[in-house]
């Protein structure tokens, strides 16, 4: 063994650095490109409204929207908070139940056959159509909104969880049996970490859907939340306020997505999707 200098895999560790050049260029372009594009969209928007092509009751100008945002800060913050709480609680419940269901279904063929049709059925039902029923059942509080958010977010988590847990290397499982590990140890040390990349993809999709779910719930019957703000603004033909609410809503979805992206980078730095990310 002393005769040999152990070889590192040069192709992977060295060559990307050569092509990467300035390590900052990747990060800058990740922010600069979308920022420039966004600016362009706002410019077009501003052009369309200032030339009178679109009247304010159809398309509010960027200035009016900004005014609606800044002048109603406290009002919007309150309703954003309501929607954010509903979304996050809904998402967390969906994550726990979704992952639990995925585990159960991967370990038991019988339970998979039992639950799968019901889960699919719950997914294909238009959520907006059952939301009124939830209001009847659960009243006008946050519960029906959370429930719609759970229903929206649940499906991608279960699907991603099942496929992630199934994607474990079969040889790793055989190895585990030779190592004499219990089912629990095998799950915690081999199966679950192997499922994380796919599971996190599902969670990212689910986070954005949870926002939609909460707002849909609010549309049907609420006296607070961003969905309520939109309905009010719509009734008053206040398109500037409507736009303001829409922008906050998107920002909320993007924020949740980014939080999960950070969790992903921390929890699966080994995964191919996070290697040489700046290259």
């Amino acid at each position: 063994m002393t005769t040999e200098a152990p070889e590192r895999r040069g192709a992977r560790t060295e060559s990307p650095a050569k092509f990467r050049g300035n390590p900052w260029s990747g990060r800058v372009s990740a922010i600069a490109y979308p920022a420039v594009f966004l600016l362009l969209v706002v410019l077009l928007w501003w052009g369309a409204t200032s030339t009178g092509m679109a009247p304010p009751y159809i398309l509010p100008s960027p200035e009016d929207t900004w005014a609606a945002l800044s002048e109603n800060g406290a009002y919007l913050a309150l309703h954003t908070w309501v929607t954010a709480v509903e979304t996050i609680i809904g998402f967390l419940i969906a994550a726990v139940v979704g992952v639990g269901m995925a585990v159960i279904m991967v370990y038991s063929r019988t339970l998979e056959r039992t639950f799968y049709p019901i889960i699919l059925f719950a997914q294909v039902i238009p959520k907006i159509a059952i939301a009124p029923l939830f209001i009847v059942w659960l009243g006008f509080g946050p519960e029906p909104k959370v429930l719609v958010a759970v229903l929206m977010a649940f499906f991608p988590i279960v699907i991603a969880g099942i496929s992630g847990l199934r994607s474990v290397d079969p040889e790793a499982l055989e190895l585990a049996s030779i190592m004499g590990g219990s089912r629990w140890k095998t799950f915690i040390k081999i199966r679950f970490p192997a499922a994380l990349p796919e599971l996190l993809s599902g969670l990212k999709v689910a986070a954005t859907l949870a926002v939609t779910g909460a707002v849909v719930g609010e549309f049907v019957g609420a006296n607070e939340g961003l969905g309520y703000v939109i309905l009010q603004a719509n009734g008053n033909l206040d398109t500037a306020m409507l736009f303001a609410a829409l922008i906050i809503m998107s920002a909320l979805g993007v924020l949740l997505f980014l939080i999960l992206e950070v969790i992903e980078r921390i929890s699966i730095p080994w995964h191919a999707s996070h290697r040489n990310k700046d290259a």
Binding site: E171, A172, L175, K189, L196, W270
Partner: peptide
């Protein structure tokens, strides 16, 4: 020992 190392990538 398998043909593939079957190491845990994490």
């Amino acid at each position: 020992v398998f043909q593939r190392p079957a190491l845990m990538p994490w």
